[in-house]
Design a protein around this nucleic acid. Structure first.
Lengths: 219, 219
DNA sequence: CGGGTTCGTTAGAACTTGTAACTCTCTCTC
DNA sequence: GAGAGAGAGTTACAAGTTCTAACGAACCCG
C-alpha cells in the first residue's frame, strides 16, 4: 500500500467496473450455481451489451478463476481474523462452518467438484497453503501426546506440504483430520444429503469437533 | 422379472439405443465432467442428428438424472455385493474407495456439488436409503459399547432416517461418522486437493478407517 | 395390405461464448 | 487548449448449445 496506489481515473473506473462484474457474478452464482454463470446475463444486468465484458475478463473461465481466488482469499482472511482474535481449533472450526453456511456456493467453489481440465494458478495454491498454515498453528496449540500411529510415521517422511512448520507428525495428522472430517460433514450438509434425515447437522458437526479435540491419540 | 419381460422388438431396440446413449454420456462425463455433457455431441458420435435423442430422453436434465440414478444404483450394488461376500465395515470402506477411484466423476455425480434447483426423485432417495442400510448392517456387527455421547442422545430422538433399523444410537453414530469421514478424505483426494502434498491418500484413508474401528467410544 | 405408431430428419427459435470491426469519448501530451 | 491516441462500448457475426415443430419414412399389427 504505497507507490502502487497512484491510479489514473481510467484505472479507477476499470477497477470499479471489474468489481461490479464480480459482484453480479456472485449474485448469479448464489442463485444458480457457478455452472450457470452467464456473461451475457451479467452484462445485460449492468446495462451494457455482452462483448463489453471481454474488456475486463478475457473469458468466462478467467472470471470464474478470479471468483475462486476471491473465495480462497475470503476463507484465508476468515481464518486469519479468527486466529488474530485468539481462536483455538474450536474457534477455527466454527469460523469455517459460519463461512460455509454464509454462502454455500462459495464453499463449493473451493472444495466442490473440480472442473475437468482446470488447474489452479500458483497464487491460489499459495492461499491454500496460508489456510493450512493457520490450521497447523491452531493445532500446534493442542497437546500432541499419545502413541504415534503408522500414518504419523508416514507423515514424518512426507511433511513438505506443511511448509517447514515445526509441528510434530501427530499435529500434522490432527490438522489433516481436522480438515477432512469437518469437510466431510460440511460438504454433505451443504449438498443437502442430510435433509430429511431428522438430526441436527450442527450437533453432528460439534460432535465431530469434540471427538477431534478429545482424542489426541489414535490407534 | 416375470410378465413384464414380454418385449416387442421396438421396445428392445429402444432400450438398446437408450443404453448406448447413456454409455456415450458416461464416456463424455469421464473426460469432461457432467457439466460439459452435450446431447449434440452424443448424437453425432452415434451417427444421428441432435434432436433424435429427444425421442429417448425428454431433456438433458432427464438424461443426467438417469445417470445419477445409475451411479447410486451402482454404489448400492457394490455395497450389496460386498455385504453378500461377507464384508465387514473395513471391506465396505475398501469397496467404497475402489468404486470411487474407478470413476471419480461418477462419485461426484452422487456426492459432489449439487445442481442448484435440482431435487432428487423419490426412487433415488430410496436407493440412498438402501446404501445407508448396508452401512448400518455392517456397523451393527461391531460392538457398540462405550459411553453415550450427547450426540448419541440426540440421534436416539432422531432415528427415522435409519428406517426402523434396530441398531443402538452409538451404532447410528458410527455409521454416520463412517460416511462423513471417509467421504471427507475421498472427496478431497478425488478433487485433487492432496496432489502435491506428498503423503499417500490411501494410507490416510486407512488411518481414518482404523480410527473409526478402534474407537467405539467418543467423548 | 392398409393405418397408425414411432423414429429420424431438417428448420428454426432462443440461448450461450467469443471475435472482429467500427464509433465515440475520454485522457494525455504537446 | 488542440490534436492524437488509447480505451470503452457498440453492432455484426461465427459456432456452439438445448429444445420445439413439422415433415417423411420405416416398421408393426390387425
Amino acid at each position: 500500500m504505497d507507490e502502487a496506489e497512484v491510479t489514473t481515473p481510467r484505472e479507477r473506473y476499470r477497477a470499479q467496473v471489474r468489481a461490479e462484474i464480480k459482484e453480479r457474478a456472485w449474485e448469479q452464482i448464489a442463485t444458480a450455481g457457478a455452472s450457470a454463470l452467464s456473461l451475457n446475463a451479467i452484462a445485460k444486468r449492468m446495462g451494457m451489451s455482452g462483448p463489453a465484458l471481454y474488456r475486463y475478463f478475457a473469458s468466462r473461465d478467467e472470471l470464474i478463476t478470479e471468483l475462486v481466488r476471491d473465495a480462497y482469499r475470503s476463507l484465508a482472511d476468515t481464518f486469519r481474523a479468527a486466529r488474530t482474535a485468539g481462536a483455538d481449533p474450536t474457534g477455527l472450526a466454527h469460523a469455517l462452518r459460519g463461512w460455509a453456511l454464509a454462502d454455500p456456493h462459495r464453499y463449493f467453489l473451493v472444495y466442490g467438484t473440480p472442473v475437468p481440465g482446470y488447474h489452479a494458478p500458483d497464487d491460489i495454491t499459495a492461499i491454500a497453503s496460508e489456510i493450512m498454515e493457520g490450521l497447523l498453528d491452531a493445532c500446534a496449540e493442542l497437546s500432541a501426546d499419545g502413541p504415534a500411529t503408522p500414518f504419523d510415521a508416514h507423515l514424518a517422511d512426507h511433511r513438505d506440504w506443511a511448509g517447514g512448520h515445526p509441528a510434530p507428525p501427530a499435529t500434522l495428522h490432527r490438522a489433516l483430520t481436522f480438515w477432512t472430517r469437518l469437510h466431510g460433514v460440511l460438504s454433505l450438509e451443504l449438498a443437502g444429503h442430510f435433509t430429511g434425515m431428522g438430526f441436527d447437522p450442527a450437533r453432528f458437526y460439534d460432535a465431530e469437533l469434540a471427538d477431534l479435540l478429545s482424542a489426541p491419540t489414535k490407534s
